[in-house]
Design a protein around this nucleic acid. Structure first.
Lengths: 123, 123
DNA sequence: TCTCCTAGTTTCTACTGGAAACTTTCTATC
DNA sequence: GATAGAAAGTTTCCAGTAGAAACTAGGAGA
């Protein structure tokens, strides 16, 4: 198994992937899809604060990268379902680890921010 | 163990943390610091393509969040060393998993992009 | 007929990223 | 003595992107 790729290199294509993953909304979408397929407006409602534009842009990018699939059902008002691909599935463990690290360590981060702000404010 | 925090909620402070971690440069910096303290210009040289402005901004934010520490040595031209804090250390496993997922799965992503572009280009 | 549902696109503004130049303090070199 | 270089940034400018809100389209239901 050769590892010709190196995230520290500029021109390296892994930078493009890292750019995609290093996106708050992309992480939340991937994490939300972990439990099964979800429709557009359902995602929109679940992921509080995301706009329709950014949701559709992000979904399109994730689909292009082969991380999620888009299935259209010709129902009455057309239904579109998004789901993780096998490739996307290999990512969710890492992604949810990141999201839940934030939940677990929130208190420590808030405390650090408070003491940092107190120190620089007193300057 | 209470989990009052939820990344899917808008106003939730975890969103702030997720915003910080969902940053290409922050991830690369944390990953680069995993092996020990590094100086400013050393980081700048190692992480190809980062600008001085963004490097200093990102370091400042990570320091504020308590993930890295900044130590100034009053040497001839002043030397500044950045290192992971214990809190930051708890993140590196996850962060490097993300960075190296990109390296491992690059080929699959590039293939997916190519077939996606071929399909939509033929439309 | 009026309104809501689906899944988006469009428009506008405000913020942020990246490139390049400038700052400051000291050492070493010509 | 003047010049250049290295450390760690800050400042300036421009372009691209995020977010908010309105608009599209084609039915279903009151």
């Amino acid at each position: 198994m050769k590892h010709a790729y190196n995230v520290y290199e500029d021109r390296c294509p892994t930078r493009l992937v890292l750019d995609r993953l290093a996106d708050k909304w992309a992480l939340l979408i991937l994490d939300r899809l972990e439990d099964g397929p979800v429709r557009f407006n359902h995602l929109r409602r679940d992921i509080k604060g995301i706009s329709q534009k950014v949701l559709s842009q992000t979904l399109k990018k994730l689909e292009r990268d082969g991380l999620i699939s888009r299935t259209v059902f010709p129902t009455v008002p057309v239904t579109v379902e998004y789901a993780l691909t096998p490739l996307g599935l290999t990512l969710t463990e890492t992604v949810s680890a990141l999201a839940h690290w934030a939940e677990r360590n929130m208190d420590a981060v808030l405390a650090a921010q408070a003491s940092y702000d107190a120190a620089s404010g007193a300057r």
